[in-house]
C-alpha cells in the first residue's frame, strides 16, 4: 500500500479510534486486496511504510464483497461499481479478504 495512504489510515485510526474506522478497498485483484488488507490489520508486510510493525486490526472490506454491496443504493452501486463487478474475479477477492479478516481483524462482532 502507498506510503502516503498508510500514513492517512494511521492518522484516521488515531483520530477516530480504530474501532470506528472501516477501510474500503477497490483493488483490481485478490492478492493486491489481501496485501492492502493485511497492511491495515497486521501491519505493512513490505516493511516500508508507517504501518510497519503497527497492527491496527481495522475492519476492512473490498467494495465488491456482498456485505458491502448490501449497504448501497442498488442504482448507485450499479452506476459506480457494476461494470467492475463484471471484470473482477469477485470470488477470489472475497475469499482473500475473508481470510485476512478472520486472522487479523480486532473489531468484528
Amino acid at each position: 500500500m502507498d506510503l502516503e495512504n498508510q500514513r492517512r489510515v494511521k492518522e484516521f485510526a488515531e483520530q477516530y479510534g480504530p474501532e470506528n474506522v472501516v477501510v474500503l478497498l477497490g483493488a483490481a485483484e485478490g492478492e493486491a486486496s489481501g496485501l492492502a488488507a493485511e497492511t491495515v490489520t497486521a501491519g505493512d508486510p513490505t516493511y516500508a511504510g508507517p504501518l510497519t510493525g503497527v497492527s491496527l486490526g481495522l475492519t476492512v472490506y473490498h467494495v465488491c464483497e456482498e456485505e458491502v454491496k448490501a449497504e448501497f443504493d442498488p442504482a448507485v452501486y450499479d452506476e459506480q461499481v457494476g461494470m467492475m463487478e463484471m471484470v473482477l474475479d469477485v470470488d477470489d477477492i472475497a475469499s482473500e479478504m475473508q481470510s485476512i479478516r478472520d486472522e487479523y481483524c480486532k473489531y468484528l462482532g
Binding site: 483490481a28 485483484e29 471484470v87
Partner: peptide
C-alpha cells in the same frame, strides 16, 4: 506483485462498458 494484468484488465473494462451500454452481449466479452 499482486498487480494483475493491466493490459488484459483494460480490454475487459472496455468490453464490460460496451455490455453495460447494450452495445455487446455478455457472452462476447
Amino acid at each position: 506483485a499482486g498487480g494483475g494484468d493491466p493490459a488484459e484488465g483494460f480490454f475487459k473494462v472496455v468490453a464490460a462498458a460496451a455490455i453495460k451500454r447494450g452495445d455487446m452481449e455478455k457472452a462476447a466479452m
